[in-house]
C-alpha cells in the first residue's frame, strides 16, 4: 500500500529528481520531505511553495476563470533546475501539494509531470 513515504521515494526515481516534499500550503509546512532542498532548507522551500500556490489559487484569477476549475500543477523553471508543484486532491479537507525539484540537465518536464500525476493519483486512489 503506497503511503506518504513511498510516494516520496517514487518521486525521487523521476529522472533528474534531487529532492521532493509534500507541503501543506495553508501553513507552508513540509509534512514530509526527502532528498535535497534549495539552500538545504526544506522549511523555507515549503514556505515559498505555499506562497506560490496561494498566489495562483486565491490571489489571481486563473483558477476562477471557469466554474469548478481547479489548480493542477505549477511549473517554475530556472537556469539550473525545474521546480514542479502538483496539488494533491483529497476529498477531505487538506491543502497539500507535492513538490519535486529536478536537475535542469537530467530532468524532463513532460516525463516528470506525468509521473507526478500518477503519484498523486495513487496516493489518494479509491
Amino acid at each position: 500500500m503506497p503511503g506518504v513515504d513511498h510516494c516520496l521515494q517514487e518521486a525521487m526515481t523521476i529522472p533528474g529528481a534531487v529532492g521532493a516534499s509534500i507541503v501543506d500550503y495553508t501553513t507552508g509546512f513540509p509534512v514530509a520531505t526527502t532528498g535535497a532542498a534549495p539552500n538545504s532548507d526544506h522549511e523555507a522551500t515549503a514556505a515559498g511553495t505555499a506562497d506560490v500556490v496561494q498566489a495562483a489559487n486565491s490571489r489571481s484569477l486563473f483558477v476562477s476563470a471557469v466554474p469548478h476549475d481547479l489548480l493542477e500543477d505549477l511549473i517554475i523553471t530556472t537556469a539550473g533546475g525545474y521546480h514542479l508543484l502538483r496539488v494533491v486532491q483529497t476529498e477531505f479537507d487538506s491543502r497539500l501539494v507535492l513538490y519535486v525539484w529536478l536537475d535542469r540537465v537530467r530532468g524532463n518536464l513532460a516525463v516528470a509531470r506525468r509521473q507526478m500525476q500518477r503519484l498523486t493519483d495513487e496516493l489518494v486512489a479509491t
Partner: peptide
C-alpha cells in the same frame, strides 16, 4: 479502514498528519 479498502494508506496518513498538527 485501509485493510477493508475504504481508504488508501496515503489518504489515511495525510488525514492523520493534518489532524494531528
Amino acid at each position: 479502514l485501509v485493510e477493508q479498502g475504504h481508504l488508501t494508506q496515503g489518504e489515511l496518513e495525510l488525514c492523520v498528519l493534518g489532524a494531528t498538527y
